[in-house]
Design a protein around this nucleic acid. Structure first.
Lengths: 118, 118, 118, 118
DNA sequence: GTGGTCTAGACCACC
DNA sequence: GTGGTCTAGACCACA
């Protein structure tokens, strides 16, 4: 898998899990891949995956059962959505607003740019 | 001055200069503060400012004259706008699009959220 | 190691790496010495080596893996040869031509002088 | 006038004078332009030109008469040629030889490249 | 272990 | 005065 150089790999892996939750590919209380399994799949050091999982556990998005594995938390979808959306509104939106002003991009143009991407 | 802990200070200083250029506070071929001067002003080590300036010079946004100082490049506004805007469209826009989809935020809601901030 | 006083040490270290690549002592995707390791070996401050490596990374000659180290880029030999050779042809050759004219040295004499050195 | 960023301006000015001597545009004991005059002509700080002249004086290539100006030394052509040529053979030739080897450029190719330039 | 960044202070060449 | 470079030493995030 390819990683963005500008952000820690373990955070990108965590985002990957969150994305799957938000896309409803993972349901509450379903098991997610084992640390070593995922590590092999995406060609990363197992420590790095372990760090991602423990980070998600801190956030309350997943929980672990010793000797068995990691599972999506109850209401995993809602929790993830809240966390990510709030973070977006609080941290990224102000920067975005500022940038759009500096670049003279209004919402119409933004819309077009985004559609161009899609 | 206050700095974001998550990004290198020298990059934040570079962004500061770019912002002033985009706000037309600095014109082409006008001199920008001396390394030591700015360092004192924003309470940072001179090496850090020097690193910012040399970074901006690599980008072609400023140029230096030996023994005299740093100056905004010809077409500094255009160059800066291009670099920053292209970077935004290439790197940030895809992430933004993806996030908005995942969070079920459409442009109307985005617009409201942004106005709420202002 | 001995350094030329007239050129920045970090550039001389960069040249050293390039030379090893051109002499095929380093192959693509092979790891080069750690910053601190090389710093000890050539008796230089680690910051200086770090600067060399980050300079070479900008040139696309080496790349880094977080927490692991620096590696020779794909086609490192070709890239290095291109960069250095083009730089030679563009920047040094015109000066050389001019000097040879001024000194009345033709290619025969140049050849003899060079052999005398070897 | 345009200056190479990689070398001190005062040395480039000195080279300019040497070049004129080698091209026999300046003869022994003829006066060269006044410091201020040349400074205006090439748009440089007078201090910088003064430094060039005093550098050339140290080399014995020019001499000054107080209140009158600077003059090409006796045998200015020979002195300049010796100094420059010896410096070339001693300092530049070894580097050149090494580079040509690394780049796999033989004298035939060098000759072609140089003619391409001319 | 790896590299990245920052501070502090020094010295230098240059204008 | 200007910027460029280097050393020394520290702290941090990451794998």
């Amino acid at each position: 898998m390819e990683f963005d150089q500008t952000q820690a790999i373990y955070l990108q892996i965590a985002d990957l899990i969150c994305e799957k939750i938000l896309l409803k590919q993972y349901e509450s209380n379903s098991r997610i891949p084992a640390v070593r399994e995922l590590a092999v799949e995406i060609a990363v050091n197992p420590n790095t995956v372990a760090r991602s999982y423990s980070y998600l556990e801190e956030q309350g998005i997943i929980y672990k059962q010793r000797g068995i594995g990691y599972f999506i938390a109850d209401n995993g979808y809602q929790k993830t959505l809240m966390l990510k959306k709030n973070n977006f509104i609080k941290n990224e939106l102000p920067k975005l607003t500022k940038q759009l002003e500096l670049f003279n991009i209004d919402l119409n143009e933004l819309s077009k740019l985004m559609r161009g991407k899609v």
